[in-house]
Design a protein around this nucleic acid. Sequence first.
DNA 1: TTGTTGTTCAACCATATGGTTGAATATCTA
DNA 2: TAGATATTCAACCATATGGTTGAACAACAA
Lengths: 115, 115
Amino acid sequence: MVEQQASQLDAVFKAVADPTRRAILARLASADARVTDIAKDFPMSLNAVSKHLRVLEGAALVRRTVVGREHVLALDASAMAEAARWMDHYRRFWEERLAALDALMTERTKKGRKK
Amino acid sequence: MVEQQASQLDAVFKAVADPTRRAILARLASADARVTDIAKDFPMSLNAVSKHLRVLEGAALVRRTVVGREHVLALDASAMAEAARWMDHYRRFWEERLAALDALMTERTKKGRKK
DNA sequence: TTGTTGTTCAACCATATGGTTGAATATCTA
DNA sequence: TAGATATTCAACCATATGGTTGAACAACAA
């Protein structure tokens, strides 16, 4: 049986799986912003955006600083590291497969020439 | 307004957001396998696993070869490339921030010493 | 103090998701 | 032909998700 632990990976991947949330991250990559500022860019209620922000915050992809009544959100891409590493593992897997295939083909071509 | 296009990214991230599906990918990284083989490793019905496989297939993370009544699944990590690139973009963003912060701190330390 | 602004909370709704079971279908085997 | 095996299809269910609206609340501005 394969072990399963609800990890930080889940939170990050789930957060990032939603296109609106990816757009919010892109928005915050250019500059920190308040909830209202962000909401203006999206075709949905401020409340909906607020919810998305909570999800991003929960995944630690976004940091919140409360200044008076304003909540300033900032991108915290460091939380993406683990997920990026996970993906990279598979990227490498894929590259190795390609390399192996390539080697095999080269080998076959050589043998073909010898005959 | 921010544009939104339901892309391949969505499919990959959504597929990968589920821990069971990540486990299936890990399983397939070690060897190709039939639906039944995979299902044996998981504490759920074969049907549930079959559904997960369809999702992975839909995201092009898995390739299916039908041989008689058997369906052999193989990992196709190449579909992960776009998603990995997306993440890498943010990883780089983060590293640049850190570097900038580091430079700033160094600068301040220098000034401090001069005084 | 009174209003306006920035934000969350709460309730609700439709649809998606991850699981189940039971049946149908197709292929191999005796 | 008659099982047994491998898989999908279909219906169903509980819960999660992404959205809405309306109210509450806190902080700033007049």
